[in-house]
């Protein structure tokens, strides 16, 4: 699972003002909370929203998971990433650095 793997990135950049916001597409908050606790995740978690207006499917049109976006301080999506495989940590690192600068 990619979320625990993002931890080192979070630890490295949280002091620089990078927010981590996560939306669970299942709307299964109970299950999500258990996972969050088990893995000691500190990100900000959002609900997916009302049926018919789900953030994941309806607003963003995301159908492939995990999908992540990097958004700059002006609310622009400067980078999008589909999937998460070994080595993607470095790509995120690089893209985050370029957005924070």
């Amino acid at each position: 699972m990619e979320l625990p793997r993002l931890k080192p990135i979070y630890e490295k950049h949280k002091g620089n003002g990078l927010e981590f916001v996560v939306v669970d597409r299942t709307n299964d908050t109970e299950n999500a909370l258990q996972f969050i606790e088990e893995n000691g995740l500190e990100y900000r978690f959002l609900e997916n929203g009302e049926e018919g207006a789900e953030v994941v499917r309806k607003v963003f049109g995301v159908r492939s998971f995990p999908t992540s976006y990097l958004i700059d301080g002006e609310g622009k999506i400067l980078y999008a990433h589909v999937g998460f495989i070994e080595g993607d940590e470095e790509i995120f690192d690089k893209e985050i650095d370029s957005i924070l600068n």
Partner: peptide, 25 residues
């Protein structure tokens, strides 16, 4: 939408800060 603490979040609230927004299950 609401966050897990029950607080309502507007997408505009995310502006002003660099954010990593992830969709997962």
């Amino acid at each position: 939408v609401f966050d897990y603490d029950g607080e309502e979040v507007d997408s505009a609230d995310l502006n002003g800060k660099a954010t990593l927004l992830a969709f997962w299950f």
